[in-house]
Amino acid sequence: MPKIDLLQEVLNGLQPQHLEVLDESHMHSRGLETHYKAVIVSEQFAGLNAVKRHQKVYASLGELMGQIHALALHTYTPDEWALQGAAPASPTCKGGH
């Protein structure tokens, strides 16, 4: 199963109202299935700061994190998402070759 499908499957455990997982590996020089962006809107993030939200995501991913070079997380509560409406665009990679 492709990693993006595994990521989506595991992140659905956070009961998101909105989940978007993008494979952004093509924007980087580390190969295929290495860089991902996840936009997660879940009531489970209510009352948590950004660090605690990210820790919650990392804990849910467990050992799968060891198979990924980079994961950009954009975590929102439903109310925050209603105001924000979209995650910021990913920057262009300035990494090595």
Rank of each mutant, 00 (worst) to 15 (best):
T77N: 02
L64Q: 04
I4D: 14
K3H: 11
A89P: 04
L32S: 15
V10Q: 09
P91I: 00
L48H: 12
V21N: 03
N12T: 14
L7Q: 12
K56P: 07
Q17E: 13
E33M: 07
E24N: 14
H18I: 00
Q8F: 01
A86V: 11
Y36N: 02
V39F: 05
L48R: 04
H97V: 10
H97R: 10
H35E: 00
A46I: 15
K37C: 05
A82V: 15
G96S: 10
H28G: 03
H54R: 13
S90G: 04
E33D: 14
L71W: 06
Q84L: 09
T34F: 05
T92Y: 15
I68F: 03
A87P: 07
Q15F: 11
S25L: 07
A38N: 00
M27H: 10
V51G: 00
A72L: 08
G47A: 07
P91R: 02
A82P: 13
L11E: 01
A38F: 03
L22W: 05
L83S: 08
S42A: 02
L73P: 00
H28D: 01
G13S: 11
A72I: 00
A89I: 05
G95I: 07
G13T: 10
H69S: 02
H74D: 03
T77S: 08
L83G: 13
E80H: 04
Q67P: 02
R30L: 06
D23V: 11
I68K: 00
Y36T: 08
H69L: 01
R53D: 05
G47Y: 13
E33Y: 09
Q15L: 10
P16Y: 05
L6K: 14
K56S: 12
L48Q: 14
Y76D: 04
L71N: 01
A38D: 00
D5Y: 14
L22V: 15
G95A: 11
G95T: 06
A70T: 04
H28Y: 00
H97A: 13
R53E: 11
R53C: 10
H74W: 05
P91E: 03
R30S: 01
L83T: 09
K52V: 11
E33A: 15
L83F: 07
I40W: 02
Q8T: 14
K37Y: 06
Q15W: 11
T92V: 15
H97P: 10
V41P: 02
H35R: 04
Y58P: 02
G13R: 11
Q44T: 13
A70L: 05
S29V: 08
I4M: 13
T92F: 09
M1Y: 06
L19E: 04
S90N: 01
P16N: 09
V51Q: 03
S25G: 08
C93W: 04
D23G: 10
Q44V: 14
I4C: 12
P88F: 11
H97G: 07
R30N: 00
L19I: 03
G85C: 06
E80K: 04
